[in-house]
Simulated scan of single mutants.
Amino acid sequence: MDVLDVLINNAGITGVQLDSNGKPIPQTAAGTSIDVFKTVYETNVYGVVRVTQSFLDLLKKSEEPRIVMVSSSQGSITLHSDPTYKYYHYKGVVYLSSKSALNMYTVNLAYELKDTNFKINAVSPGFTKTDLNHNRGTGTVEDAGKRIVKYALIGNDGPTGKFFCEEINPEGTGEIPW
């Protein structure tokens, strides 16, 4: 039987461009081109929606379907409006807003499928050292992978429609505010 048990949506680009010295050019709300928004949203939001919708029929055949949206704590509006948040001064309107949009899609999809065995959550792997951030991250790919897999394998009594970042909230549930 054709079935899919787990879908991990790990689409993500920043749209950040580098200057001639290799330093990131800030993405300001007042000055970033709409073309940069379109490019990033095409991958980070629209691509995820397309993939998710394409695989829903196969996931519905699973006894315990799981969808993990790989997000970022940078997509938390609550955290980014708090001056005490450790990444408060790291703004980038395009990437951050695309992850906020992904988070809202996650909430809506989880709501629509709340009366099923689906578990759909957004998970931030933490500030991981990858090409995405020009290897400036502090976490390992292995730790990030473990965080994502943890929510891909949760039981039927596990959460759905939640946002997790164990780097930001390592105690307790790991849940962070939207």
Results as ranks from 00 to 15, higher is better:
Met1Cys: 01
Asp2Met: 04
Val3Pro: 08
Val3Asn: 05
Leu4Pro: 11
Leu4Lys: 04
Leu4Cys: 11
Leu4Tyr: 04
Asn9Val: 01
Asn10Phe: 10
Gly15Cys: 12
Val16Arg: 15
Leu18Trp: 15
Leu18Glu: 15
Gly22Glu: 15
Lys23Asp: 14
Pro24Lys: 12
Ile25Met: 14
Pro26Asn: 14
Gln27Pro: 09
Gln27Asp: 03
Ala29Phe: 13
Ala29Val: 14
Ala30Leu: 15
Ala30Gly: 14
Ala30Gln: 15
Gly31Cys: 13
Thr32Gln: 10
Ser33Cys: 12
Val36Pro: 13
Val36Phe: 12
Lys38Asp: 05
Thr39Ser: 08
Thr39Val: 07
Tyr41Pro: 10
Glu42Phe: 11
Asn44Phe: 10
Asn44Asp: 00
Tyr46Cys: 11
Val49Gly: 06
Thr52Leu: 09
Ser54Pro: 11
Leu58Tyr: 14
Leu59Ala: 00
Leu59Asn: 04
Lys61Tyr: 05
Ser62Leu: 05
Glu64His: 07
Pro65Gly: 00
Pro65Ala: 09
Arg66His: 04
Ile67Val: 07
Ser71Leu: 06
Ser72Ala: 14
Ser73Gly: 06
Ile77Asn: 11
Ile77Gln: 12
Pro83Gly: 01
Thr84His: 09
Tyr90Cys: 13
Val93Ile: 14
Val93Arg: 02
Val93Leu: 07
Val94Asn: 13
Leu96Ser: 06
Ser98Gln: 01
Leu102Asp: 06
Tyr105Val: 11
Thr106Phe: 00
Asn108Thr: 09
Asn108Arg: 07
Glu112Asp: 04
Leu113Lys: 05
Lys114Thr: 05
Ile120Ala: 03
Ile120Thr: 02
Asn121Gly: 10
Val123Thr: 07
Ser124Pro: 07
Phe127Leu: 12
Thr130Ile: 03
Asp131Lys: 13
Arg136Trp: 02
Thr138Met: 08
Gly139Trp: 01
Thr140Met: 06
Lys146Ala: 12
Lys146Gly: 11
Arg147Ser: 12
Val149Arg: 00
Lys150Pro: 02
Lys150Asp: 06
Tyr151Val: 05
Ala152Phe: 08
Gly155Ile: 10
Gly155Tyr: 01
Gly158Thr: 07
Gly158Lys: 06
Gly158Gln: 11
Pro159Glu: 10
Pro159Ile: 13
Thr160Leu: 02
Glu166Ala: 10
Ile168His: 03
Pro170Ile: 01
Thr173Gln: 05
Ile176Lys: 07
